[in-house]
Design a protein around this nucleic acid. Structure first.
Lengths: 248, 248
DNA sequence: ACTTATCTTAAACCGTTGTTTTAAGCTGCT
DNA sequence: AGCAGCTTAAAACAACGGTTTAAGATAAGT
């Protein structure tokens, strides 16, 4: 009796809204989804509370459980709902030239990490929170939000590196890029303590995006005469024994 | 009556232990500090519970409040306690050549982020948690743990860049390096979903540290013939207006 | 031995959070 | 009007987490 909620119905029949455009209707369900997206994006799954969401949606506490069953179901529905408007991945801007594309995608990520409002921004911040405190729906967040960015970044980085997208070096570089963006987004408070002038104003955000792109391109765009030591595709990981010299 | 705890004494007279070597004594206070350091390092301040800490220390729940007043006081005491053994900053390894020093410091950070055990590792993970969920003692964490790494990294990066440590470009580069380390440390679960082979085994940790160092050095070590666009010291930040072309 | 200060314990208190219940309001239909 | 099905509201429940209380142990001082 514990594995299934005791409510008569989990989700009471999707409210007959047009499936492609749920932002038009204004029933309680939609208001809850909208509020939940904002609160989840701001505080992360665990730190968001149902009462916060319901207050923002001007709805009763019990309505989350009536409409969605439980908190986690609401969260996954937010992800589904948040994906509706655009067909595929909604980073439309993509220059053909991979270096320009990289700069654009980094700029878009930095903007999304800081600019409030807009579903794509909410979705991106949702993902940033999953990075550091995975919820029970992390796999879904990866599929819905992160994988598209990841795959596109691998293509772009691979094109510049002249390596396949699934190459180890390509993947490491993509994680380096994602890591820089996530870091500037997450550690805003500590950043302010270390570097008081950095307030992440719009102009500073552009500066940061410029820096991340240039910093990353310096490696990606290196002369082919100095290939990375790991360029050869090594099938296994265990070969290189821990050399222990980094012990301190 | 609320601003001051009602216990007769906040901290009941430091237990006369040798101030330099608190790891020898095994009274309740020390056991609590040890357990708290582990739990805080693993879960972060907010997500660590006093009951968790007390269970691990084999102590009663009330003892935290008896010995330290409240949770935050315990946390700051952990930081103070955690700093005791080494005199200053405990990253002893520093090669004279800045490129080698960078590789060493990155390797040490990656190891500390993943290797369990050891006070310096605990302290570093404590800091990593503060990055993403600042507690009430963030300023103290910055002073005790982060600032030394930050300043040393700025010196090293500045030496390679041939720029002063307080230069904007130097700072941006240091944040890029810190961001990469923090990202690989934080997003372990999501990393596994995107890249199942990456399990952060010791060998893979070395690979990651190598990559971060090489990736970062590509920019730091660039030929002086292509200086960064922001090399000139600009006193103000507001000059460059948001160019709006990154709107999507 | 009696007192005192220090430390420990079990139990409770109080606020918060996810969840459920119960009882009402609607709305459309006959 | 009356019924049925969907939706909302108010209240409560159960679990958890930080904190406090009141009493019991232990050791030292006199």
């Amino acid at each position: 009796m514990l594995e299934q909620p005791r409510t008569k119905r989990l989700t009471p029949a999707i409210p007959a809204g047009v499936p492609g455009l749920p932002e038009a209707v204004d029933n309680t369900r939609t208001r809850l989804l909208k509020a939940a997206a904002e609160v989840f994006a701001e505080h992360g799954y665990a730190n968001a509370t149902i009462r916060q969401i319901c207050t923002r949606a001007d709805a009763n506490v019990a309505l989350v459980n009536y409409h969605f069953g439980d908190k986690l179901e609401l969260y996954t529905e937010v992800l589904r709902f948040s994906l509706q408007p655009g067909a595929g991945f909604s980073l439309p801007i993509v220059a053909a030239e991979p270096r320009a594309a990289l700069r654009q995608i980094v700029g878009a990520m930095v903007e999304r990490a800081f600019e409030t409002g807009g579903q794509a921004n909410l979705r991106f911040r949702l993902m940033l929170n999953e990075f550091v405190r995975p919820s029970g729906a992390t796999a879904r967040v990866v599929d819905v939000v992160l994988r598209p960015v990841y795959d596109r970044l691998r293509e772009i980085a691979g094109a510049i590196l002249k390596l396949p997208p699934e190459h180890e070096t390509t993947r490491l570089c993509v994680h380096s890029i994602l890591g820089q963006v996530a870091h500037f987004a997450h550690s805003r408070q500590m950043l302010g303590l270390l570097w008081p002038e950095m307030q992440m104003t719009p102009a500073q955000r552009e500066l940061v995006a410029d820096h991340i792109a240039r910093f990353s391109l310096a490696y990606l765009d290196r002369t082919p005469s100095s290939p990375p030591r790991t360029a050869g595709r090594r099938p296994g990981w265990k070969k290189r024994p821990s050399r222990g010299s980094s012990r301190i």
